[in-house]
């Protein structure tokens, strides 16, 4: 039993280890280890395409995780006191957002937004006062909007779980003591759910940063880091991709550990 478990752990971690090992390969060949070197990290970090893709990914992840945490928390808090058809509708939408495959979300966003923009662009051109009118197109906006959709559903689920585990009497006591609803939220609810919000933010950030399939459809002319890596893999295996991969894995590991610690402290305090 123990030996079996050890084998599964090897299965899970050997591939990651191999990537990391070959990222320090001195030679160009992806198959033989020819001595230790950090040159591929230097190459990756000075490659303008990599840096631009990284910047796009970071901006999209940061903005969409922020929107998802703020709007998701608002919705989760409001859903607690909501019943009837509105509640049912939201439950259904969250379920659909999580259930539908990412690839279908990508496709739907692509053709939905392109169709919408085709309708809006002539209108904008007609009413724009002076100068060339702005053209709506796929890019940062569509990337952020599509990532926010999925991660917002995730945040709502996480925060609702946290709110469900919270002692309702606290909020009631606060309002009995004449705190305004806003005061109760700021001084009682928010501190209690804050670790969950932060964890939701970090998970959203990781999801957005690592997402390939939705971005592949909605990125327009922008390139995110996963899109860059995917197209490089198609052209062949190089130690540079290993270096990028190792850095990405290390960064998501750090974020995950942070999210774990936050969820844990939140649970203990609650």
């Amino acid at each position: 039993m123990r030996i079996y478990a050890a084998f599964v752990y090897l299965f899970l971690y050997i591939p990651i280890g191999v990537i990391a090992l070959f990222s320090f390969n001195a030679g160009r060949h992806a198959s033989q280890f020819q001595g230790f070197s950090t040159q591929w990290y230097g190459k990756a970090l000075s490659n303008p395409f990599v840096m631009e893709a990284l910047q796009t990914s970071l901006i999209v992840a940061l903005v969409s995780a922020t929107c998802a945490s703020v709007f998701g928390t608002m919705a989760a808090v409001a859903l607690q006191g909501t019943k009837g058809p509105l509640r049912t509708a939201f439950d259904l939408l969250i379920y659909v957002a999580v259930m539908i495959p990412g690839i279908v979300i990508g496709i739907a966003t692509l053709i939905g937004l392109v169709t919408l923009f085709d309708q809006l662009n002539p209108v904008l051109a007609a009413i724009w006062p002076g100068g060339p009118p702005p053209q709506l197109s796929m890019g940062y906006g569509s990337l952020i909007a599509a990532h926010t959709l999925f991660t917002m559903a995730l945040v709502i689920i996480i925060i609702r779980a946290r709110l469900a585990g919270m002692d309702r009497a606290l909020a009631e006591a606060s309002s009995d003591l004449y705190a305004t609803p806003m005061g109760t939220f700021r001084q009682v609810t928010l501190p209690l759910i804050f670790p969950a919000i932060l964890a939701g933010f970090l998970l959203s950030f990781t999801f957005s940063f690592d997402d390939f399939i939705i971005a592949f459809f909605v990125a327009g002319s922008e390139t995110t880091l996963p899109i860059y890596v995917f197209s490089s893999i198609r052209r062949g295996v190089t130690p540079e991709i290993n270096a990028i991969g190792t850095m990405v894995l290390a960064a998501s590991l750090l974020l995950l550990i942070a999210a774990q610690v936050l969820l844990r402290t939140g649970r203990r305090r609650g």
């Binding site: 703020v70 608002m74 919705a75 859903l79 939201f90 659909v96 053709i111 959709l149």
Partner: peptide, 21 residues
């Protein structure tokens, strides 16, 4: 009001696109 942004997001980015498909 609290549900409005999330609701709008679901409408524009999920319901309408899936209907278009």
């Amino acid at each position: 009001l609290l549900l409005a942004p999330a609701g709008a997001w679901f409408l524009v980015m999920l319901v309408i696109p899936l209907t278009v498909v």
